[in-house]
Write a protein that binds this DNA or RNA. Structure first.
Lengths: 157, 157
DNA sequence: ACTATTTAGTGCGATATCGGATTATATGCA
DNA sequence: TGCATATAATCCGATATCGCACTAAATAGT
């Protein structure tokens, strides 16, 4: 019966993570839909997230660094970068320190667009914040970040 | 300066949700990749999640109910259902209560596949559980669920 | 210096996802 | 009953995402 309990614990652990990941998947879906509803047609969350990253972390990153940051395949990042470059929101230049590589820089237009998109979304977020205090959102973050880092490590190791 | 403080709070609230949604997006990405790495080629997370739902919630649901449950467009669900049906993991039958509608039922093969997939993933999950206690995962759930429900409501209203 | 291996980015083909229009059935209302 | 509207599912076209193979440049080992 120690075995049974162990088996039961196992099942419970599995179930807990499945439910959690399922909820996370749906939330990703919903939040992306909310953002895209406020952006001009053709502007996707993946692109907006990239602009945000270049501001928050700093621009000049290489495509590979960006792919790793978002945990998407290199080819996907190549595609996203090409779209944003065509749109004039970023500039891609050779990496002076590595001939194989490139660097991604924000343009003024990119910064402006990001500001504008941010402003367009603010009302929705504030409405959400009225029902779900930002402190509560912040409280969720450490656990999620820890989980993300564990998954990150597992992927490489 | 009350204005400044207000503006600052606004910014902080915005930032909190952006960071949270960003983390959620990456986690969705990573967990999907982890699952798919353990599934036969061509079997995607969206399909596996559907099988799980039909077990956890109960089968006999209509395509539209399923689309709403996962917050994906109807057309996406049509596609996913068609794949699983072709594979023999689900059976789609007319809805006796509504001539426009259908019902989705699990087949024995579908149940068997799901069991098998679950078992294949268990080691990964248990490894994760060793570093991140399931209770901690469970503790994250209420907040995320509340947030998800708020986004759900916002979408319709 | 030279070759083998690793690494950064891209081209290409397959397909999952999605929005818009269409069809069939159900519901509401006169 | 008959007609207008709403709803369930699908069809179609566009495209974001992804895996695989390839090229070019850097690094390691001799």
């Amino acid at each position: 019966m120690a075995q049974d309990e162990q088996g039961s614990d196992r099942g419970a652990a599995l179930a807990a993570f499945f439910v959690l990941f399922n909820e996370i998947g749906i939330l990703a879906q919903l939040s992306a839909a909310m953002f895209e509803a406020r952006m001009p047609p053709g502007h996707l969350t993946s692109q907006f997230a990239l602009l945000n990253h270049l501001i928050r972390v700093r621009d000049g990153r290489t495509p590979l660094e960006l792919a790793r940051a978002f945990q998407v395949p290199k080819t996907t990042m190549t595609h996203t970068i090409a779209l944003l470059e065509k749109r004039g929101h970023i500039a891609v230049r050779p990496n002076p320190e590595d001939g194989r590589s490139k660097q991604v820089w924000l343009t003024d237009a990119g910064r402006a667009f990001r500001e504008q998109a941010l402003a367009a979304m603010a009302p929705d977020i504030m409405e959400l914040a009225a029902a779900f205090p930002p402190e509560k959102a912040a409280a969720l973050l450490p656990g999620l970040t820890e989980l993300r880092k564990l998954l990150d490590e597992r992927r490489d190791g």
